[in-house]
């Protein structure tokens, strides 16, 4: 489903070029739960941006559901993100002073779906992420960190994406809450969702079925985890 073929990414920082990815290849099949792990500066953020269709590689090929994403224009990338990818961020990135339900339905706003249908889908997504039903109309800034991340997960689920991309989803949570959020990902994976988790913590990565370790722009290790 995801085919990364010999991808490189070079940033031009003025005086000298900096190669963040130096030829990375891997394949992720549908229904996998993969953790991409590596210390900061390893190139994992760059890889996440490319996998998330936020950025394009300098060379190499990226096939998402058989479609070549590596050379698309800005608005074509936006369309890919809208249809195929759900994001979960470290800092949640919820709209402030906005109800939970509106936050979750936000991605559907850009799909042209009618409002009542958007709300139905948002409620389904909130139920899947395990968010308490009586809080649907609370404002986002009244929630706890764990609740916020559940809302963010629901938002990532709402457009029924091929891939859920979670960037350090537990980074702003305490261990216990983080644990619960990771359990949610495991549960979603059991239901068939493909999940890519980016983290620098081994404990977090251990929740996945497969860990790809990146170091200095190259894949260092690609191992399956038996639970």
């Amino acid at each position: 489903m995801i085919e990364i073929k010999n991808i490189t990414k070079t940033y031009n920082t003025g005086e000298m070029d900096f190669q963040a990815l130096k030829g990375v290849s891997f394949t992720i099949k549908e229904g996998e739960f993969v953790a991409i792990m590596g210390p900061s500066g390893s190139g994992k953020s760059t890889l996440m941006n490319i996998v998330g269709a936020l950025d394009t590689p300098s060379s190499g090929q990226y096939l998402l559901d058989g479609k070549d994403v590596s050379s698309l224009s800005e608005s074509e990338l936006a369309k890919i993100r809208k249809e195929k990818i759900g994001f979960v961020f470290q800092s949640f990135n919820l709209l402030k002073r906005t109800t939970v339900i509106r936050n979750v339905a936000l991605p559907l706003l850009y799909t042209g779906m009618p409002k009542d249908q958007r709300l139905v889908r948002a409620k389904e997504a909130l139920a899947s992420s395990g968010f308490e039903e009586d809080h649907y109309y609370h404002l986002s800034n009244q929630l706890s960190g764990g609740q916020m991340q559940r809302v963010a997960i629901a938002r990532a689920l709402v457009n029924n994406p091929s891939l859920i991309l979670a960037d350090e989803p537990t980074g702003n949570l305490d261990t216990k809450t983080g644990e619960k959020v990771l359990e949610t990902f495991t549960r979603l994976n059991d239901k068939g969702h493909t999940i890519v988790l980016i983290t620098h913590e081994y404990d977090v990565a251990m929740h996945a079925n497969r860990i790809i370790t990146i170091r200095d722009g190259l894949i260092e290790k690609d191992e399956n985890i038996k639970h």
Binding site: G52, E74, S75, R81, K82, E83, F87, N93, Y110
Partner: peptide, 16 residues
């Protein structure tokens, strides 16, 4: 800025 970034990440294009 972050809100705009989020909107773009979830599929809003320049026109939106």
């Amino acid at each position: 800025t972050r809100e705009i970034g989020l909107r773009k990440a979830i599929g809003a294009d320049r026109k939106d």
